[in-house]
């Protein structure tokens, strides 16, 4: 049997509720968009319900510690259909077994959750490292990103704590939303300004000091390198090529 849900976290938790309500045996959870009906497989579209989701969440809170809840959330943010299904199976597994069952790394879903969580956390950490702000004329520090997973909710706190005295804006242009910090709170913003910024006139938005500091940074990057230790393989292992477009020091 296949359960279809609307890709929301609440929808996912509701489907766990529905499974325990009906107990239909083996079920696969899939996102409803792009689902191809199968002649031999019955399917059920889950109606997302806030109350049901809340009850499941309460149950999870009782059974899992913070670290595991974060793992589940990270896994959800990976936005891959397999990950959704693993969360669904994992939740059912946790409710069916006694407390502490989430530590059974021999179980395929437990292992999958920790693997997905690990790659999302890695991407989150990379964003914390590789984001390079450029100061605009109106004193906003701006950066646009294109992460593999939806990590903006995870990095928000880090940047808020760190850059408390400057306005900043991080825009995820694949998912078309961004975070803007106005010196008090972080706001989620939606706007379509990609076309303007990606055109050649981008430099005119920037503060003139920006050229100075980016040049100094590029100089520093060059002079801190030890040529006789050159190790390109290690270099690209730590900074995979797909991140180079973020990095000021990699601009020519």
């Amino acid at each position: 049997m296949v359960y279809l849900f609307d890709r929301s976290l609440e929808g996912l938790l509701t489907s766990v509720f529905e499974w325990f309500e009906r107990r239909p045996g083996k079920v696969t959870l899939m996102p409803d968009v792009g689902h191809q009906p199968d002649a031999f497989m019955a399917f059920l579209t889950i109606q997302t319900s806030r109350e049901k989701a809340d009850r499941v969440l309460k149950g999870l809170l009782k059974r899992l510690d913070r670290a595991w809840l974060r793992k589940l959330y990270c896994c959800y943010l990976s936005e891959t259909p397999e990950a959704f299904n693993h969360i669904f199976q994992f939740c059912c597994y946790v409710f069916k077994n006694h407390v502490g069952a989430e530590k059974n790394y021999g179980d395929p879903h437990v292992l999958a959750i920790s693997k997905y969580a690990k790659s999302v956390e890695r991407e989150k950490h990379r964003m914390e490292a590789f984001i390079r702000f450029k100061e605009t004329k109106d004193r906003v520090f701006y950066c646009s990103i294109d992460p593999d997973f939806n990590v903006l909710p995870l990095i928000s706190k880090h940047f808020k704590d760190r850059y408390g005295d400057q306005q900043w804006l991080i825009y995820d242009h694949r998912r078309r939303y961004g975070l803007y910090y106005n010196l008090k709170t972080v706001e989620e913003i939606n706007m379509d300004f990609n076309n303007k910024l990606s055109s050649g006139s981008a430099v005119s938005f920037m503060d003139p000091k920006e050229v100075f500091y980016s040049t100094l940074w590029k100089d520093y990057f060059k002079s801190t390198n030890i040529i006789s230790r050159k190790n390109t393989k290690l270099h690209t292992k730590h900074v995979p090529k797909r991140y180079w477009r973020y990095l000021t020091e990699k601009e020519s």
Binding site: A129, H158, R162, G164, D165, H235, H238, L247
Partner: peptide
């Protein structure tokens, strides 16, 4: 103010010698 410590540290980039 500006800045805070990150308990596990962050490597912001890597030189060509890795």
């Amino acid at each position: 103010g500006l800045g805070n410590g990150h308990i596990s540290g962050i490597c912001h980039t890597y030189t060509e010698d890795g």
